[in-house]
Nucleic acid binder design. Structure first.
Lengths: 100, 100
DNA sequence: TCAGGTACTAACAAAAAAGTTAGAAATGCG
DNA sequence: CGCATTTCTAACTTTTTTGTTAGTACCTGA
């Protein structure tokens, strides 16, 4: 459990993984648009950590303007069941709650 | 997903839930012994938040010295699948890692 | 009488995470 | 030429989280 916690903790990581699971590859800018409220610093930061932990792949296309795509790695895909369960659990239980 | 994140994020929460899942009810002091490295402040703090979010129950026995037991609530028990998956995933993937 | 055990609480300090703002590189296009 | 586009970087500040230390309440049993 400790390892899972260390790799998945971070305010946006599960959301990022969830979006990549749903959408396949996403560009930096697409992620930024989906992750409402995230700052660029945090987005880069979380992506870097996820990449370092081997959960996502970063594919940079040598173009101008730059195009960088992110997608789940094989290791990241093994989180699929967990991500889906969490998402469903949240949907079921997020009823009478005031957002913090 | 956002709700799940908001309720489960916290350095010790998943560990606490995991121990309660494995052991049923646990006393404050038992939790403290299992959660190696936690401070009393954090333990209380995380327990309070978990209780507030309805994931655990706090049962205080009116004795001296005091005895307080914590256990998963019905809502907390619905996290069982997720907790088990995460734990298994961690075990499988925590191979070549240096603890931060 | 008085130390012992248990589950906390409070006040302050340190550390970590997150927000903010400014800007860089590279090239196509008008 | 100079502006727009896209993906970042860096420096600095603020906020949040965590650590530390000290102490409380209560009954029991020696």
């Amino acid at each position: 459990m400790a390892y899972a916690i260390s790799v998945l903790s971070g305010r946006w990581k599960l959301s990022i993984l969830g979006f990549l699971l749903d959408n396949g590859k996403l560009r930096y800018g697409e992620l930024k648009r989906k992750l409402i409220g995230i700052s660029e610093k945090m987005l880069i930061n979380q992506l870097k950590e996820l990449e370092k932990d081997g959960l996502i792949n970063r594919i940079a296309h040598p173009e101008v303007p730059p195009r960088v795509e992110y997608g789940l790695s094989d290791k990241g895909k093994t989180l699929e069941d967990i991500l889906l369960l969490m998402s469903n659990w949240g949907t079921k239980n997020a009823d009478n709650r005031i957002k913090t």
